[in-house]
Computed example of a mutant assay.
Amino acid sequence: MKSILSYFLIALLFPLLFSCKNEVKENTETAPVDSVAKISEGKELDAKRQKNISSSVVSRAMMTPELSRFVSSAISAGLVDSLMQGGKMYTIFAPTNDAFDAMDSKTKERVYNLANVASLKQLLKNHIVIGNLDSINLVSSIRNHNGNFKINTMGGTQLNASRDGMDIIFTDANGKKSKLVKSDIKAENGILHVIDAVMGE
């Protein structure tokens, strides 16, 4: 009787043991595949991030020789990291090196004072706009707004865009004017324009 019971117990347990063994085997076989997929996904995200950085508006400015002062100022002001990331589109009206050199001595002393980085940051933000404004959009917006298109900057100031013949002119709140001298340097996260004066001093 005992031998018969033992036989039935073995007969019942054997399929269960076999199925558990298969389940463990399946889990060990699929685990490495999942790990490889996660690693691959991480590499793709890193590659995408690197692409965004290398083709950002700041990178385009770095490759434009006449904007080296603007780039060094953006680094000093701590703006580079945010302008290199994706997620938002930026339009930058970047003053040339000559434009920075032409600032009056009092303004230079104020914005390049290491103890007052906020002042430099504010000045640069007066040249940055959230959104993607290429020259075609600017021209059509000027025309659609009776010759004067108001642009809100990240610095909380306004630039007025208008036309003077074929030129696009920007006027800040103090009445200072700058001209668009190079346009539509396209980037992954926005667009870069070069202007000939520092605005919102």
Rank of each mutant, 00 (worst) to 15 (best):
V181Y: 02
G155L: 01
K176M: 08
V111E: 03
I128S: 02
S19Q: 11
A161Y: 01
K108H: 14
M199Q: 14
I128N: 05
Y90H: 05
N146Y: 15
D164S: 15
I4Y: 14
L83M: 08
G131P: 02
E44N: 11
M103V: 04
N116F: 14
A115L: 13
K2T: 11
K106M: 12
L79Q: 06
D196F: 02
M154D: 11
N137F: 08
A31I: 13
I151W: 06
I39F: 02
V24E: 09
L45V: 13
G87C: 04
M84C: 09
N27W: 13
S35G: 05
L124H: 01
F170L: 11
S119R: 03
K121I: 01
E44W: 02
A37T: 07
E26F: 06
S6Q: 14
F14Q: 12
K125L: 15
I53S: 03
S183Y: 04
C20E: 06
S105A: 14
V71E: 02
R110L: 15
D172S: 06
N97K: 02
L9H: 11
L192H: 04
V198R: 00
I128H: 02
F170W: 04
G42D: 07
A47M: 10
M1C: 06
T171N: 07
R60N: 12
L9T: 06
N137Q: 11
N174Q: 13
T64I: 04
R110D: 14
S68L: 04
I185L: 10
M199L: 13
K176V: 09
A47P: 15
